[in-house]
Design a protein around this nucleic acid. Structure first.
Lengths: 123, 123
DNA sequence: CGTCATACTTCCTTTTTTGTTAGTACCACA
DNA sequence: TGTGGTACTAACAAAAAAGGAAGTATGACG
């Protein structure tokens, strides 16, 4: 419960844009510092919480938990808890998550190309 | 000039991730509330500042200026000033900007599909 | 009873992003 | 001299995202 000005348009703008176009809606689900990376790491294989932590440089427990929760809520990642001690939890992509992988691959390809192009630009 | 803790890892994390993978680097260039939308509106035609303002719901002068400046700096958009009064400034996509359009189209397609899928989901 | 390992949660601070308000320069034209 | 239209800019405020530090439940094992 955060207090927010009753006239806030910050929140409204996001909602308007999300309804207005699937692109900004998607960006909203994928935005943030870690989400694309998490999806990427889950593409080939399911992984445990601790395994994700190992492969994601500098992420904290808190951020990993938060991002996974949102991805789960948004239907991109499935979470399976094994009733063991110590606990074991596995994360894997859903069908929707997998459906997105061509897109982030093309994003990665563009990113690498564009970076080279701008880095070698004169001026 | 904002003051920042010398030990801040927020900034560092972004840089690390951007260098680590073209996907997060790209996301960094495209992230934020308006950028993809601006690119999208410029895909078919060049537009003036005031024209962009008209087609972007609820954007403010300030945000439009900021986002255009970053897109220009990042080599996605070209800016042309005409020495007239009142001033006229036109924005258009660069080659890199155009190269990205298949990607945001697939993002949009995925977004629309995914939204339908999750909205109609039971539970 | 104390320790271990995993996967978290809670409370709080800092940093980043977005929005608000009120301006400015330019020159033609009335 | 005053108004009009365009494309901004500066100072400030609010909201959102990210990070830091410390704590919790579980049950096997010693």
């Amino acid at each position: 419960m955060t207090t927010r000005k009753p006239t806030s348009t910050n929140q409204r703008n996001r909602q308007v844009l999300d309804e207005y176009c699937g692109m900004t809606y998607a960006l909203h689900l994928l935005g943030g510092r870690w989400k694309l990376l998490i999806l990427y790491k889950l593409e080939q294989q399911k992984r445990r919480f601790s395994e994700l932590k190992q492969v994601l440089p500098h992420i904290t427990d808190r951020m990993l938990t938060l991002q996974l929760r949102e991805l789960e809520h948004d239907g991109l990642v499935a979470r399976t808890v094994f009733a063991e001690v110590p606990p074991r939890v596995e994360y894997e992509l859903t069908a929707s998550g997998h459906a997105l992988s061509p897109t982030w691959k093309s994003l990665e390809a563009w990113g690498n190309t564009h970076r080279q192009a701008t880095e070698t630009m004169p001026g």
